[in-house]
Simulated assay, not measured.
Amino acid sequence: MSIDRLDWDTLRVFRVVAELSSMSAAAGRLGESPPTISRKIDDLEASLQTQVFLRSTRGVVLTEAGKRVLRYVEGMAEAAEALRRATEPPGAAVSGAITLCTSDGLGPYWIAPRLSHFHREHPKVRIRMMVSDEPADVHAEGNDISISFGEHRQPDTIAHKLGVQHYVGFASKSYLAEAGTPANLHEYHKHRCILHSSYANQVERSAPRMSEYRRMVDFAFITNSGTAIVETCARSGGIGILPSYMSRLDPRLVPLELPELAPVKFWITYTERVRRLPQGRLLIDWIRQLFELPEAIWFDDEFVHPLEYDKKVQELRPGTQASLRES
Rank of each mutant, 00 (worst) to 15 (best):
R84E: 13
V73R: 03
G96L: 01
R205V: 08
T320H: 08
L30G: 02
P306W: 08
H160N: 12
P35N: 08
V131H: 03
D42M: 02
L290K: 10
F170A: 02
I127F: 07
Y309Q: 08
E81R: 14
Q321R: 15
G226H: 11
P155Y: 00
A82P: 00
A207F: 02
T50N: 06
T102H: 12
R55I: 15
P89E: 14
G169R: 00
E212V: 11
E308C: 13
Y213S: 12
I145M: 14
L282I: 00
D156S: 13
A179H: 09
H152N: 11
G59E: 13
K311G: 04
Y188D: 02
G142R: 00
A177P: 02
L307W: 00
R5I: 12
R120F: 05
A234S: 10
P318T: 06
E151F: 02
A82E: 02
Q165K: 11
S21L: 01
R71T: 00
K312F: 03
L11V: 01
E134M: 00
V13L: 13
S323N: 05
A200P: 05
A46N: 04
S236Y: 04
Q51I: 14
A97T: 05
D9A: 15
A220F: 03
S323E: 12
L176T: 03
I229T: 08
A171Y: 06
E204F: 13
R215N: 07
A93Q: 13
C193E: 02
M23Q: 14
S21G: 02
T50R: 04
D285E: 14
